[in-house]
Write a protein that binds this DNA or RNA. Structure first.
Length: 929
RNA sequence: CGGCUCGAAGCUCAGUCCGGUUGUGAGCAAUCGGUUGAUAACCGAUAGGUCGUUGGUUCAAAUCCAACCGAGCCGACCA
């Protein structure tokens, strides 16, 4: 007994290797390396062997460009689902995929090839496109992995893999078996200079000078509208800016909601919409006119007018697409030359008539105009527009002709104006095949999350036209059909298609282009006419067909069950992948490919507006990762409600970084105070624990329940709220604050400290596990720092969620402490007032006198000597009174140098002059044990 | 234009289906203060909302209905 004890060294302060700062941008890549080195995904597969499956089938992103906040969100939400189901004890495999074919890549590749003056034949494009797609699969794979998404990254599915391509063809053959595939016509953008169809993306709009003409169509059925018109010379006036489409006119469209007039002008009677009559009169120079009849547009339905120069009728139809913006309200309709014309023409059963060849010349059988070019490109071109106008004039059908400037589509390559021209296309029939009805019916058996998805999907199918699966393109899977060179018959045969598919499986779909026809066909294949001279179809499949067939190529070969448990994508996929997958699933397997569909909202900026590079309001995942870490993006995905549009902005990310630090520090506090605690030997039995520690366990048990429930319901926001609220309020502000005195001052092996540590241990284990799907990196880092944890499992991701524990449940305690903390609020307010009055600084400088009614007083007394620790003051006195009131005074005695409480017995033990009696005892216990 | 969704404190989120102490809702941020033994941490107090607007139904509306305003997705390739 000589050296005075340094009191400071006898305080058990937190000690941990778990750093205060996450330093995420540096540490996350290290953790990813570690997971890769230990092969975490395979470990998980082994750990879950024989466990019930949970299959989320990944929708493939397009292998083009870098990832953006939307694709990051997509993968992270999927990771939430996969990881949480895994933590529930399922084997939840994740096989990522990529959509590789299609126009955007083809366009990019064409640009590059052109720059290098390389040839643009199909195989050149296909080779370059494959290389391009491969490059972006690799880039995106790196980016997705960086987000902490766990999966079978070394063996993803890609739609351009030979086996996948083969399965696409096999899926198509199933539609053929059902008789659901037919050839039809549809107008597409067409460049007569490049002699090719163009996609919307290849069309640019710029000003163009067209002819604007008014034409009269004789209306022999006029008397059916109004007997008073019986003996009159009645015509319907139409207006158009594309005179060359008149030879293809098959009808005139009226709006059923508009009023139309019969107008007498001299000896003529004209029909035009009431709302445009004045404009028409002005244009046509009518000095006087008389309205002799007014009719609803509906009455014209299915009557006939006469084509002005072709010997046929022109059917009158009704459509909402007719507007009063310009013209006459009676719209010239040529189903082969316009999309809306096509739609209404199909509805009325008109032929999709196209009398124009690929270079823009009227075909031979077009009376008067054969050999004219619809749009003259050179000086010597016989101009179809002019010819039509001249002819109309010569037969007296032209009422007016003038020049007209407007925005018109042009080919982005050659800059020439584009026309609309019906070309042969392959379709999947939806109505006749019964697929529409089957799709609508199947919707009710699918679990939609959110629920309105059901309605949205059904609406999508209720009115869905036949699916146009043809693309006049190079980069994709060919529609494996042949034509007879002799009789023109189509060879549409499932057996032949499957034969081709087997070939694709070995050689990829390139075989279609590299091989002779005879090598693509089963030996001895002949057309029905006996001819062996066959040629291949040039069209490829719509890429929605590719991705829609993903289940078959991805899950089936891996022995995974049909249907998948869930598909999860953005709301845009109702028209996209959800849709095509359902159609293909129904056609191939007679059942939907998914039991459930989760759809989420769109990422928008801080003001709720869409993000665009031109507006400069985008949030780049790469930047966020660099600045704050991928964990912050993950946190964002959970913190905002992903089932609506989700706002993201610098402020929101700052708030989330704050929240992250709070959660991190809460875990760190637990870890720091578990120093010297071995759960195997130091655990205190529940019934021996101090009351507030049992409360803490009851409380974290409730949080567990809330999290489990929220994970189950895919309510990620609630998981985040539960964990965050638990960290800030329950733990940091209440439990930890109260616990400090006990943890720091009691002897390391004392019941008091071990009891607290038992609770802290359980709490931090639960935080790590329950947050692991969300905070994939940090939860694992916490896990590593929990005593004994890594011996149990090498990674938190290999563990399972804790259960809601009936032993820990204690509703009475929860209510009791709720009540206590209510009183605490009043005490805090009083302390604050005293602080403002400069009476005290720290709470421990105070003693409080609480006035309370008998009930409350008895309640407070039940906490005994611990009450002052609950309020973190040096003394509490109770007195009777009606209303709850708190008075604050300076605490009695002196400040103990060790525990900082004010007591009257500081120095009572001469061995420790600065310490209070309680501390002196604790030190003795420490030194002797 | 058609289908679907969303508008509440500066921010995120409960509450809206099934109207009734829901406007003293939570946390964060802000402001002011405390602490310096979770320390680029921690604790407390204060102040913040005509629940998009306007009408209606009702004794009573953030909640039900209608219209309007604003925002977003889809309608042949952006999650």
């Amino acid at each position: 007994m000589s050296e005075p004890v340094d009191l400071k060294t006898t305080v058990n302060l937190p000690k941990t290797d778990f750093p205060l700062k996450g330093n995420l941008s540096q540490n996350e890549p290290l953790r990813l390396q570690k997971w890769e080195a230990m092969n975490l995904y395979e470990m998980l597969r082994e750990a879950r062997q024989g466990k019930p499956l949970f299959v989320l089938h990944d929708g493939p992103p397009y292998a083009n460009g870098n990832i953006h906040i939307g694709t990051a969100l997509n993968k992270i939400l999927k990771d939430f689902v996969i990881k949480s189901r895994s933590m529930m004890g399922h084997w939840a495999p994740y096989i990522p995929g990529w959509d590789c074919h299609g126009l955007p890549i083809e366009i990019k590749v064409e640009e590059e090839l052109k720059k290098n003056k390389q040839e643009l034949d199909r195989m050149a494009i296909r080779k370059a496109a494959r290389a391009y797609a491969n490059k972006f699969v690799d880039l995106q794979r790196q980016d997705f992995k960086r987000l902490g998404v766990l999966g079978e990254w070394d063996n993803p599915y890609i739609t351009m893999a030979p086996a996948y391509q083969a399965n696409i063809v096999r899926a198509l053959s199933k539609f053929v078996e059902r008789g659901a595939v037919y050839k039809g016509s549809r107008p597409v953008h067409w460049c007569i200079s490049c002699v090719t169809s163009l996609a919307e993306a290849e069309v640019e709009y710029s000003d163009h000078s067209s002819y604007s003409i008014y034409v009269k169509f004789a209306f022999p059925d006029a008397a059916k509208v109004d007997p008073a018109l019986a003996d009159k010379r009645v015509s319907i006036i139409i207006w158009t800016t594309t005179p060359w489409t008149l030879p293809a006119n098959l009808g005139i469209s009226f709006n059923p909601k508009f009023e139309y007039n019969a107008v007498a002008v001299g000896d003529d009677v004209f029909i035009a919409a009431n709302g445009l009559l004045e404009d028409v009169a002005k244009k046509l120079g009518w000095e006087t006119y008389e309205i002799i009849g007014t009719y609803s547009g509906e009455v014209f339905d299915r009557l006939n007018a006469r084509h002005p120069f072709v010997d046929r009728d022109s059917l009158l139809m009704l459509g909402d697409h007719v507007t009063l913006e310009a013209g006459t309200g009676a719209v010239h309709t040529a189903p082969g030359h316009g999309y809306e014309d096509f739609l209404i023409g199909r509805e009325y059963g008109l032929e999709i008539y196209n009398p124009v060849d690929g270079r823009g010349y009227f075909m031979k059988d077009v009376e008067h105009f054969a050999g004219n070019r619809v749009v003259a490109l050179g000086k010597n071109d016989p101009d179809g527009n002019k010819a039509v106008i001249a002819h109309l004039e010569s037969i007296g059908a032209l009422l007016k002709s003038e020049k007209f400037n407007h925005s018109y589509p042009h080919c982005w390559r050659c800059r020439n104006p584009v026309i609309f021209r019906a070309t042969p296309q392959w379709f999947i029939s939806m109505e006749k095949s019964g697929l529409n009805a089957a799709a609508v019916e199947s919707c009710d058996n699918i679990h939609w999350h959110p629920g309105w998805g059901n309605e949205r999907m059904k609406n999508m199918f209720r009115d869905r036209p036949d699916w146009n699966i043809s693309r006049q393109r190079a980069w994709g899977v060919p529609i494996t059909v042949f034509y007879c060179d002799d009789c023109g018959e189509t060879l549409l045969d499932p057996a032949v298609m499957n034969y081709v598919a087997d070939l694709f499986e070995k050689e990829s779909a390139d075989a279609w282009y590299e091989r002779e026809v005879k090598d693509l066909l089963p030996p001895g294949t002949k057309c029905g006419c006996g001819s062996e001279k066959l040629s291949k179809e040039n069209d490829i499949l719509d890429v929605w067909f590719d991705s829609g067939a993903s289940w078959i190529s991805t899950m089936e070969p891996r022995g995974l069950p049909y249907p998948a448990d869930v598909y999860l994508e953005g709301g845009d996929q109702f028209r996209g992948w959800f849709n095509s997958s359902l159609v293909i699933g129904l056609a191939v397997k007679n059942a939907p490919p998914y039991k459930g569909v989760i759809s989420y909202g769109w990422a928008v900026d801080g003001e709720g507006r869409k993000m665009s590079k031109s507006l400069g309001n985008t949030v780049e995942p790469e930047k966020v990762i660099k600045q704050s870490g991928a964990e912050i993006i993950r946190l964002w995905c959970a913190a905002v409600n992903c089932y609506e549009d989700m706002r993201i902005s610098p402020e929101i990310l700052t708030r989330l970084s704050d929240a992250y630090r709070k959660i991190r520090n809460t875990a760190r506090y637990c870890l720091g105070n578990l120093d010297g605690f071995d759960p195997a030997t130091d655990n205190v039995a529940l019934n021996e624990m101090l009351e507030i520690d049992r409360w803490a366990l009851a409380s974290v048990n409730e949080m567990t329940k809330r999290c489990l429930d929220a994970w189950q319901r895919y309510d990620f926001t609630d998981v985040y709220q539960a964990i965050y609220h638990n960290a800030t309020v329950t733990l940091s502000a209440l439990y930890f604050d109260i616990l400090k005195d006990r943890l720091y001052t009691t002897a390391p092996k004392s019941l008091e400290r071990r009891s607290a540590q038992t609770a802290l241990y359980e709490i931090v284990v639960r935080i790590a596990k329950l947050s692991s799907p969300l905070l994939a990196f940090t939860s694992d880092e916490i896990w590593e720092n929990i005593p004994g944890a890594t011996a149990e499992a090498a990674s938190v991701h290999l563990t399972t969620f804790p259960a809601y524990d009936e032993h820990l449940r204690n509703d009475e305690l929860l209510a009791r402490y709720d009540k206590l903390f209510g009183v605490r609020d009043v005490v805090m307010k009083a302390l604050e007032e005293a602080r403002n009055a400069k009476l005290i600084g720290a709470g421990l400088e105070a003693k409080v006198t609480i006035t309370a009614n008998a009930d409350t007083r008895a309640f407070l007394e039940s906490f005994g000597a611990d009450l002052r620790f609950m309020f973190i003051v040096s003394g509490v006195a109770l007195q009777d009174g009606a209303d709850l009131k708190v008075e604050v005074a300076k605490a009695d005695g002196e400040k103990c140098e060790r525990c900082w409480n004010y007591t009257t017995d500081v120095g009572v033990n001469a061995a420790y002059p600065g310490a209070c009696g309680r501390c002196a005892q604790n030190i003795d216990t420490m030194l002797t044990s």
